[in-house]
């Protein structure tokens, strides 16, 4: 019973959503619109569950005074502070939430991602050894795209920006399209397996 009910819910909800694309009228269309709202709400609670789990793991680390406990304290304090600021103080401009977003979240987020520029550079140093034709193609395509997108590329040759946009528009689109079609076939097959109950790993 503990497995049969969830399997039935999966089948019913998946089947109804698929049906709504074929029968967008009352009552199927109406029902799936409501389901769409419910789905968003439950998905948010799945995310909240993840955040509560993060809180639980760090609280455990803090209570047991495990190594690095004070980083856990900082994390929990930042989390609680942001939530209180948003829920009590509101999200309007000039609020505490807005201050934390502008001066803490945004710079941290941008710096974290910009840090990747250095790691990507060191990774490319290792990856960009033209040991065979495939690696050579990857190397040439990457160099042409990088050079073609900066003023230096235009200084070297006025053809570089044109070659860059040709690569992005044609061979790159071809590869992306093949990947998208392949991935779509994979998603469709997996979705069908889930809806008809062959794929049950999410119940474990």
């Amino acid at each position: 019973m503990k497995r049969m009910i969830p399997l039935f819910i999966t089948f019913a909800s998946g089947f109804l959503i698929i049906m709504s694309f074929f029968i967008p009228h009352y009552p199927v269309g109406e029902l799936t619109n409501i389901m769409k709202e419910w789905y968003m709400v439950v998905a948010v609670f799945a995310m909240i569950l993840g955040i509560l789990n993060l809180f639980k793991v760090n609280a455990h680390k803090l209570i047991k005074l495990k190594p690095g406990w004070w980083y856990a304290l900082i994390l929990i304090s930042a989390l609680i502070f942001m939530v209180i600021a948003g829920w009590i103080g509101g999200m309007e401009e000039g609020s505490w939430f807005d201050f934390l977003f502008k001066f803490v979240y945004t710079p941290l987020n941008a710096t974290m991602f910009s840090l990747l520029a250095f790691f990507v550079a060191s990774a490319s140093f290792r990856a960009f050894r033209a040991r065979n034709i495939d690696a050579g193609l990857l190397l040439i395509a990457a160099i042409l795209v990088m050079l073609g997108r900066v003023p230096l590329g235009n200084l070297i040759s006025s053809y570089l920006p044109l070659i860059q946009s040709w690569i992005m528009e044609f061979p790159n689109t071809a590869g992306q399209r093949a990947i998208m079609i392949g991935a779509a076939l994979g998603v469709i097959a997996t979705s069908l397996r889930i809806i008809i109950g062959i794929e049950r790993s999410y119940l474990n």
Binding site: K2, R3, I5, P6, L7, I9, T10, F11, A12, S13, G14, F15, L16, I17, I18, F21, M35, K36, W38, Y39, V42, A43, F45, A46, R177, M180, I181, A183, A184, L185, V187, I188, T190, S191, L192, I194, I195, Y202, L203
Partner: peptide, 27 residues
């Protein structure tokens, strides 16, 4: 499991149709 089943089932339904339409047929 009941909530997970709902999210997974609805997500699979959307995934099936949207990928079929936009990623397969459109491409």
């Amino acid at each position: 499991r009941i909530s997970i089943a709902f999210v997974v089932g609805t997500g699979a339904g959307y995934g099936f149709v949207t990928y079929l339409k936009s990623n397969l047929f459109e491409q």
